[in-house]
């Protein structure tokens, strides 16, 4: 055998072995890095959003805080975005479910948060089209809140605003509790009645806390987060109460109009949720969701 032939053969073996090993590694990595695991079964969920605020393929999906999958695809439709996620377990949506896009940090990055809804609520049929809630732009929110706070601090109007709101809230609650005649039909239904009563007490508690809490407010103002939320609440409550108090005629219409009646019911629920949330100092997102969702 010639010298050059021996050299060739050892060269062939080495190049071949190297290529083989690397291609094997490439296949391995491709499987690891792709979201699909060929040995596991995946469950798909499709949700429609008005706006996805930069959610990306591959972002995580959390079910009540547990990572259960990833966003597979985003398809832009006429006026919505259809988000498909592959999940490692099936999720059964119930009435009152929430699907949201949550910023994972101030610097960006989103995840999809799924809440199946209250455990005792009826399950939705399989083929229900799921709608997600619009996302919050954390930075925008923070900036506008801070600006508003700064402005009202400068003008020294925070307290005035709060007081004004309280007055309006009181008016509403009085109207509601006293308004047996006007809201007769509303109060015929136990559920609505209970809800209203709940709202009333809640609102009362809030207003009491706020009006007596001169000192508490002072402390609250020291903490930025709570303060911002308060500011936001103030704004939201103001618009809610303004609309309600000017809507004496609207309330009248409620009795006649079923659609408006339905909406009022929804509104009640939202308001109650908002107040509940406020008491638990829940994230500001809830408030904006009232704001956009109710009106």
């Amino acid at each position: 055998m010639k010298r050059s032939q021996l050299r060739d053969i050892s060269m062939e073996v080495m190049v071949g072995a190297f290529m083989f090993m690397i291609l094997l590694a490439l296949g391995f990595f491709t499987i690891i890095l792709s979201y699909e695991n060929i040995f596991r079964q995946y469950h798909e969920v499709t949700v429609k959003f008005d706006h996805v605020s930069g959610l990306r393929q591959g972002d995580n999906v959390f079910l009540r805080g547990v990572m259960i999958g990833r966003v597979r695809s985003l398809i832009v439709e006429n006026d919505r975005v259809e988000v498909t996620a592959s999940l490692q377990r099936p999720v059964n949506m119930r009435e009152g479910y929430r699907i949201e896009i949550i910023p994972s940090s101030v610097l960006g990055g989103q995840y999809l948060s799924i809440d199946e809804g209250p455990p005792d609520a009826p399950a939705l049929p399989e083929d229900t089209v799921l709608y997600g809630r619009p996302p919050v732009d954390l930075i925008d929110e923070a900036t506008s809140a801070v600006q508003a706070v700064r402005q009202s601090l400068d003008e020294g109007e925070v307290l005035h605003n709060l007081e004004a709101i309280m007055a309006q809230v009181n008016t509403i609650t009085h109207q509601l509790s006293a308004g047996e005649g006007t809201l007769g039909r509303l109060l015929m239904e136990d559920e609505v009645y209970n809800e209203l009563a709940q709202v009333t007490t809640n609102l009362r508690t809030v207003s009491e806390q706020l009006s007596t809490g001169q000192g508490t407010l002072g402390r609250l103002l020291m903490e930025d987060d709570v303060y911002n939320e308060l500011e936001q609440l103030t704004a939201n409550l103001r618009s809610v109460s303004e609309q309600m108090s000017t809507g004496q005629g609207t309330l009248g219409k409620l009795i006649a109009d079923d659609e408006l009646y339905e909406e009022a019911q929804l509104l009640m629920r939202e308001v109650r949720a908002a107040i509940d949330d406020f008491r638990e100092t829940a994230p500001i997102t809830t408030f904006t969701s009232i704001f956009f969702g109710a009106f």
């Binding site: 060739d8 060269m11 062939e12 080495m14 190049v15 190297f18």
Partner: peptide
């Protein structure tokens, strides 16, 4: 082909 192989050897294996 063998010329290519030789270059492959020089490019990859010798630089590893």
């Amino acid at each position: 082909r063998h010329d290519v192989l030789h270059q492959q050897f020089l490019t990859a294996i010798k630089s590893l």
